[in-house]
């Protein structure tokens, strides 16, 4: 079988709280991350909630 070299980058589709967490962890573990978001800004549904997060940790 042909062994091709793996690429050290990853694409994350969706810039909500889940995608952001995955992106942060991967970037922190030595991978290059493309974070792809459909709308004009990341933050997803969580940014629409009034009270949930005491500290706004969601920014990159």
């Amino acid at each position: 079988m042909l062994i091709t070299k793996k690429i050290g980058s990853v694409m994350i589709v969706g810039g909500g709280v889940t995608g952001i967490q995955a992106a942060l962890d991967l970037a922190d573990s030595g991978f290059f991350v493309y974070l792809v978001e459909k709308s004009g800004a990341i933050g997803g549904a969580m940014s629409q909630l009034d009270k949930i997060f005491p500290t706004n940790d969601c920014s990159m």
Partner: peptide, 27 residues
Amino acid sequence: ISQSVTSGSAAAAAVSDLLAPARFELS
């Protein structure tokens, strides 16, 4: 939210497992 954040990290773990040989090649 907490399950989502957890699964985000879990996905990172799965990716990290797959691509471990290529770690630090592009960062």
